[in-house]
Computed example of a mutant assay.
Amino acid sequence: MTNELHPYQDRKKLKWNGFFLSEHTAMVAKEKKERAIVIKPKEKLTEEEIGSILSEAVVKSKRVAVQLDKVVDDSYLPDIAGMVSGYDEAGIYVGGERVNFDEIRNVEFQSVAKWSELED
């Protein structure tokens, strides 16, 4: 008799809304935040300046940050950072990624903070 007084109504999609994972929501928010960041261009270096910095990085085992001369959605791509692990006649390998010499806009040495210098 209670079924006649209160018939069951399926809430369809509404009943599944609680199953969205918080990780998914956080990932979507992070991607939205990253798209909002606009990376400004650094000074365009000459081939000689780029070569000099890369040579010193190889000889003295220094980390570098490479900005590519490539714009996507009115923003430069994030720097490719790491150690120079190899090179050939067309490009270099930085942090495991291959970068052609003609794509490089800027190269600079990158300092890594020691754990003892980090603040909470």
Rank of each mutant, 00 (worst) to 15 (best):
M1R: 05
M1Q: 07
T2D: 04
T2P: 04
E4T: 04
L5H: 02
L5M: 03
H6R: 14
H6M: 07
H6K: 06
Q9V: 12
Q9G: 00
D10M: 05
R11E: 13
K12T: 05
K12L: 10
K13R: 12
K13Y: 12
K13G: 10
L14I: 07
K15T: 01
K15D: 05
W16A: 09
W16V: 01
W16Q: 14
W16N: 09
F20H: 08
S22Y: 03
E23L: 12
E23M: 13
T25K: 15
M27G: 04
E31N: 08
E31T: 09
K33W: 01
K33F: 02
K33Y: 07
E34Q: 13
R35H: 07
R35S: 05
R35A: 06
R35F: 05
A36I: 00
I37F: 10
K40W: 01
K40A: 05
P41Y: 11
K42D: 06
E43R: 12
E43T: 11
E43I: 09
K44D: 02
K44I: 09
L45S: 01
T46R: 06
E47Y: 02
E47A: 08
E47T: 10
E48D: 10
E49D: 08
E49K: 08
I50L: 12
S52L: 07
S52N: 09
L54W: 00
S55R: 10
V58M: 11
V58C: 08
V58H: 02
V59G: 00
V59N: 08
K60R: 14
V64N: 07
V64E: 11
A65Q: 10
V66N: 07
V66D: 01
L68G: 02
D69I: 11
D69F: 14
K70P: 00
K70S: 03
K70M: 06
V71P: 09
V71I: 15
V72W: 11
D73C: 09
D73N: 15
Y76G: 07
D79I: 06
I80N: 07
A81L: 05
A81D: 05
A81C: 13
G82E: 10
M83H: 14
M83Y: 15
M83R: 13
M83P: 03
M83C: 06
V84D: 09
G86K: 15
G86L: 14
G86H: 13
Y87G: 05
Y87P: 00
Y87A: 13
D88N: 15
E89G: 12
A90I: 11
G91D: 12
G91S: 14
I92N: 11
V94W: 15
V94N: 02
G95D: 03
G95P: 04
E97D: 14
E97I: 14
R98D: 03
R98I: 11
R98Q: 06
V99I: 15
N100C: 13
F101L: 15
E103P: 02
R105G: 01
R105H: 03
R105L: 12
R105Q: 08
N106R: 10
E108F: 08
F109D: 13
Q110G: 00
Q110F: 12
Q110C: 00
Q110I: 06
S111A: 07
S111W: 03
V112D: 06
A113H: 04
A113Y: 00
K114N: 09
E117P: 00
E117W: 01
L118Y: 02
L118M: 11
E119V: 03
E119T: 09
D120V: 02
D120Q: 09
